[in-house]
Structure formats: structure tokens, C-alpha cells
Design a protein around this nucleic acid. Sequence first.
DNA 1: GTGGTCTAGACCACT
DNA 2: GTGGTCTAGACCACG
Lengths: 121, 121, 121, 121
Amino acid sequence: MDYKFDNDKPIYKQLVDQLKLEIITGKYKPNDKLPSVREFAIELKVNPNTVQRALLELEDSKLIETRRTTGKFVTDNKKIIDNTKTEIINNIMKDFFNNIENLNISNEEIIKYIKQNRKEK
Amino acid sequence: MDYKFDNDKPIYKQLVDQLKLEIITGKYKPNDKLPSVREFAIELKVNPNTVQRALLELEDSKLIETRRTTGKFVTDNKKIIDNTKTEIINNIMKDFFNNIENLNISNEEIIKYIKQNRKEK
Amino acid sequence: MDYKFDNDKPIYKQLVDQLKLEIITGKYKPNDKLPSVREFAIELKVNPNTVQRALLELEDSKLIETRRTTGKFVTDNKKIIDNTKTEIINNIMKDFFNNIENLNISNEEIIKYIKQNRKEK
Amino acid sequence: MDYKFDNDKPIYKQLVDQLKLEIITGKYKPNDKLPSVREFAIELKVNPNTVQRALLELEDSKLIETRRTTGKFVTDNKKIIDNTKTEIINNIMKDFFNNIENLNISNEEIIKYIKQNRKEK
DNA sequence: GTGGTCTAGACCACT
DNA sequence: GTGGTCTAGACCACG
């Protein structure tokens, strides 16, 4: 795992996004134990508080839960994970639609652009 | 014209984006005179410094130019406007591709989503 | 018996409260023998140290006593049990009064709320 | 205003509760500007980060909003404030009911206790 | 060893 | 001057 942070967004927010992604794509599975705050901090070379803040946000969104003194775990509620995934996709699409809204571009043109420029894996 | 600003982005940057859009979509045409900084400020209910900063950035990108004592005008260089448009579109698409990059979504699915959810005007 | 612990309070404290309740409500009667630390630990799926700590606190409050080599027993001093009960009730009421203290709610309203929402058994 | 913090709860949480109360009881009114983070910190003799954390939580619950560079303001959405008030009351009552649930106390007894012990203002 | 909280102090962008 | 972020480092309760 190799995270690089850019300067446009707060690190903790990038971390939230990154971890969300890893949970909804199954890299971290339900009930998996996350690395401890300290381990994360060392691995990512950031301050433990920064990690803590990111994990707090994930916990608020119910994607992870803290079991006292034993660590933090990915939720076992798959519905929450699925909902999160749908929500993320919808947000991405909504942002995208907003961005091109005023540019008078047809769906045809967008689709053409995608086919020409996006390589699938 | 009724702008609302959100708190996530600097106002001046939102202003830059808005004005860029109005130039490349032809709402402001080449050689049009822009409202004065003061007028903008009153209309948008923002600090004149904020307007000033936005216009400065537009001037840097050559989309507008200051003609001494008479005001600020949209460039008459259509190529610059066209390039800006292309650049904006490319950026939007790039951001979009980045956002969905790790979600394992095929082009097919994206196209389907667009057809189902984006209404053209 | 099926205990679930929440993460806001220390487990041992939740255990103390639970056991206190079972003593003052007569589920465990005076002179009853308690399960051993080990049995408790298995039944509740917690660390034996946690059980130990809870029982220690109960012993401090005189509600249970250790008889060497034979185990731990609920006190036979009914006055202690009664006092504990009164104390618990007073604490609950005191907390409750504190909580609503600044909300400008009259006794009338509280009583009405109770009548409407609390079903007795 | 004179806050004292106890040691049972995190300071930031006590601050959240305190401010919530002051908002729902109208001590801070809709659209009021809150003292700045730094002012709060000095007044309460805590670290600005602690204040920041509390205000963040209030913002999450929509009770306050941040207007960039100008400060933090009580929401102008009275519905949110009302809902918060109802929610707080319900939580207090729910906790109370839970606490006395196993004690076999009748509504009559509770009401009598309240009448005897709670002095209204 | 685990997370939670707090402090002190710094730097930054924005207006 | 305003809030936002981050670091370094400390202490605590819990199990």
C-alpha cells in the first residue's frame, strides 16, 4: 500500500476517501481489523492525530466500529457498505453532470469522449 | 444573475470558474466590457478585493484584458477562448476518470448511467 | 442471560451495574453463591480480569463477600441491599433532574410525558 | 457565562452539550454569531483545538454553520433547532426509563418522587 | 498495546 | 482576525 497525498485536500480527508474505497471495493472486508492508529501513522508518515481524525469520520459514517481496547474493525453490515458505494457513485456522477451542465455538450459527445479516452482495466 | 457560493472553495476561485464559463459559453462575448470591480462586488455581495483577485487570475489566463482607464474587456482572441474551453472539458473528464478509477466500473455501465440519468436540454 | 456491552462505558462498570441490579431485584438472593470468575468470564465472553475487577468493586460495596475457598456470596445483610437500592434510585433521579434542569420543563409536563410514554409491567 | 468541566466526560463533549442547550433555549438565537474559536478558548481556559472539535460536532449536527473567514453562526433553520430540542428531551426520557426499567417502580411512585423532590423554578 | 483526549504551538488561505 | 489543518508529544483508562 502506497499512499501519496496531494496538497489540495486535507490529508485526513484523502485518507477517509482512500479507506472508504478500500472498504467498498473489498480490499478491507467486513469484520477485518484495521491497522492500529499508530501503525497507520507510521506507515503513512503522518501524525497519529491525523489518522485518528480520519478514522473518526469513518466511524461516524458507520463503516468502521471501535471495539474497546481491541482495535477498529470494518463493519459487518454489508448493507451500509453497499449504500456507501451507491452513494459515492451517485455523487461522482452528480458532480460530473454539474460540471458539464453549462457547456452545451450532448450525451453523444460525452460517450464518444469516454470511449476514446478511458481505458478500462 | 444570482450566484451562491459554497464554503468549500475560495469565493474568488468560484468566481473565476463562473466567469470563465460565461466567457466560453458566449454569455460574455469577445470585446464585451465587464462590469467594474465595484459593480461586481455589489452585485455579488462580496468584498471588492475578492473580485479583484478573481479578475486578476482571468487576466493572467489572457481571457480578459485591461484597457487603461476604460475598464476590463473580454479578449478578442477567439483561439484563447476555444483553448480554454477544451482545457476545461479535459479537466472535467480527467477529474471524472480519476474519481471512478478505482471503482471497477466499465465504460458500458457509465454510458448506461449517463443515458438513464442525464437529461439533455 | 444475555449481556451486551456498549462501548461508551467500561465493561467492568457495566458488569457491576448489572450485578447490582440483579441483587437488589432479588435475582440473586442473600447468601446465594455467585458463579466463579472463570464461569462468569466464559458466559459473558469477557476477560477474567474484567470480571475480577467488577466483583472486587461489588465486594468493596459490601454487596458480596468472599468466603475463603468456597467462593463469593451475596451478602446476607438485607439492610445493605436496601440501602443500595435506595441509593441507585436516588442517583437515577438525580441524574434525571440534572439532565432536564436547563430545559425549562415543568413537573406537569414531565408527569404527562411519563403517563403517555412509560408502560408499566 | 461560567463553565466548569468535570472529569467524567471529555471537555469537548461537555462543551457541545452546553452550547446545544444554549441554542435550544434561545440563549444563542438563530443567526447569532458565536465567539471565535480563540475567544472561546480563552474564556473557557481550554485549548483552541478543543473548542474547534466541539464546534465541528455542532456543525455536523447543522446547529451552527461556518461562513468563511467571518465566523461561526447559529443556524437560521428553526426547524433544526426544534428537532434538536425534541430529540434531546426524548433521549433524556428514554435513558431515564431504561434506568428504572428493572427496578419495579410504578409510575405513581415516580410521580410522587418528582413532586416531592424536584423544585421548579 | 489499544484508542481517546488534550495541550502547545505552528502554518496556511482567505477577506 | 477568521477558521482549518497538522505535528509533536503527553497522559489516561482499559483489558
